[in-house]
Design a protein around this nucleic acid. Structure first.
Lengths: 330, 330
DNA sequence: CTATATATGCTCAATTTGAGTATAATTGGA
DNA sequence: TCCAATTATACTCAAATTGAGCATATATAG
């Protein structure tokens, strides 16, 4: 009924160490792509048609094998199947489909294969970290270059559309910056040719990649892997608002500040401490263990743990962030 | 690098007619599956590796061909690839992957192929419509049978887990019913064998399907298509809270009550009229056209239209419903 | 003219937010 | 020893939002 495809699985494995969200990467060794020592890739594995009963099991399986990592939370992210995503497919080779999964792990117990390493997500998507205000790179490079790009469009209406997209994505002209619009921002940068992987599509191999890459934003990734990461970060930022997934990233017990730092790391913004506490408290997501954190530098904080049974009570138990409007049911 | 798969595309095409959410279905004629005149399927099409540059274009393409339908909003839903989803794959045949898309259309201009028909989503998922309170089928059949099923588990802890899952999914024991948990509910019914397609997995062809089907809940669908529908409805219910997707389902101008009815149809609950208006109004999502609806039966309502430019202003412009908690940014 | 039905304006208490101030319990030096 | 720095936590208070109504306006059917 339809032709055959190559199907693989990618995993965006996220952890938070201290105050930075990290993603597990491997050395890029994809044949046929622009690869150098700087270029990294997301872990990739086959979907075994025989042994993998479900795709999720498949991901868990080969990630365990390759990295020794065992994760609790996994969700399917997106299936990437555009013809141009891989030069091989573009050149008439077999088309490669990739089903990407998002996984959350508790810390970095990296065992096994040393080709894997944790990278800070914000080294790969530097314009996404607004914890100390609007990132410099946004002011100094992104806005000017995207504005220039918007002006390049052929018709008046296309210029207006581009300008508006930029404004919405980066919170210009009175629009508010929305942490979840990670993919929109990435796609703008891609279309405008500001990320190194954008070149590959136009004319692979023509320009010396190392030379240009220096001018581009952020560290480069193989194929459409940075798009996958952007998809993952956007999804995760949305999810923490209404599902208690943060706890998958934390140790079994934690202080409220640690919890806040993890949320901030993912959300990319700073939160008001007292109000954050009030909300966490009211939401009943956590309960104090009597013990205190052995701490240096201030009053010791109480250690909390996640209340698993909260899932029964509240329908949308997230850790909160500016969110959606509501309407009362009748 | 990995083996070959068959890859196809499914579309969950949703419209709202009057007060009922509808989904486009086709006559089931899948070879090898339990098919009779009652069993329907979601539209299915190939992913053409040559012509379809992106999968989304692919979907738009063959849906247009098959039904004459042109839709504005499309989003990728999920990729279904479990080995057991298709009897063919289970029996060692080629494994079939399906990438499902959710599409919203404005009304039902069904042209072309007459094997297609619109069905009420709540004929397929009858336990999801809470607009007149908790559905009878939940009280009379689902709760009793799921409770019995929970008791059947082998160990004490498994029984407790099942019981808790049921309580969370259907809003028992003080838990609140959550409209978005469509998939969780479907999966419970599936595991408990209360939907007809569940039998197929255990022992295909053994039991006379027509006989048993009469006792099962809702109209049957081919393969895992009802799971796809459940995924779609859950996603859509989530989405209307924070993105203005409802307008894809409405005529260009509409009264506020029509808007409310569409939201209610999708959400599966009734809303408080005055408060709904207040929120829509405050959200600035719509603007009045001066004209009035020609109406019979009461004071005529003003016609409104969607304000496209609202996308620039608000970061999360949905029509609202009980939603997430918030935390103030610093 | 009345009953009925819908639209739309307005009120009001309860709750939730946003943004602080105040106070408590530590550590590391002056 | 006592002060500065640092972090935790309690509490306040005005503004905004929500939940639940009541009241009034404008139609139609008889």
């Amino acid at each position: 009924m339809e032709t055959s495809f190559s199907v693989g699985l990618n995993a965006v494995i996220v952890a938070v160490t201290g105050e930075s969200p990290r993603v597990l990467t491997v050395q890029a060794a994809q044949p046929g792509s622009v690869a150098d020592s700087e270029t990294v890739a997301l872990p990739f594995g086959p979907l075994d048609p025989i042994s993998g009963r479900t795709m999720e099991r498949g991901v868990r399986g080969w990630v365990r094998e390759q990295t020794g990592l065992e994760f609790g939370y996994v969700e399917q992210l997106y299936t990437f199947g555009d013809r141009d995503r891989d030069p091989v497919g573009r050149d008439g080779g077999p088309r490669v489909l990739s089903v990407a999964y998002l996984a959350l792990v508790r810390e970095e117990v990296l065992a096994g294969n040393c080709r894997a390493q944790w990278l800070d997500c914000y080294d790969l998507l530097q314009w996404e970290d607004w914890r100390s205000g609007r990132p410099k790179v946004v002011d100094e490079r992104i806005i000017p270059e995207l504005t220039a790009w918007a002006r390049l469009a052929s018709t008046r209406s296309k210029r207006a559309t581009r300008k508006e997209r930029v404004a919405i994505a980066f919170g210009l002209d009175g629009a508010e910056w929305d942490g979840e619009k990670v993919l929109e921002r990435y796609e703008l940068l891609y279309e405008a040719g500001l990320v190194c992987e954008a070149m590959r599509e136009v004319d692979p191999g023509t320009q010396p990649p190392r030379e240009r890459a220096r001018h581009e934003l952020g560290r480069c990734m193989v194929l459409d892997h940075r798009r996958m990461l952007a998809t993952a970060l956007g999804r995760l930022r949305g999810k923490i608002k209404y599902r208690p997934v943060v706890f998958e990233l934390l140790a079994p017990t934690f202080t409220l500040l640690q919890l806040q730092r993890v949320v901030e790391a993912l959300a990319g913004v700073r939160l008001h401490k007292q109000n954050f506490r009030r909300l966490v408290d009211k939401g009943g997501l956590v309960e104090g263990t009597g013990s205190l954190d052995e701490y240096t530098g201030g009053r010791p904080a109480e250690l909390f743990r996640f209340r698993r049974d909260v899932l029964r009570e509240r329908s949308a138990p997230g850790v909160g962030l500016p969110g959606g409007t509501q309407v009362s049911r009748v």
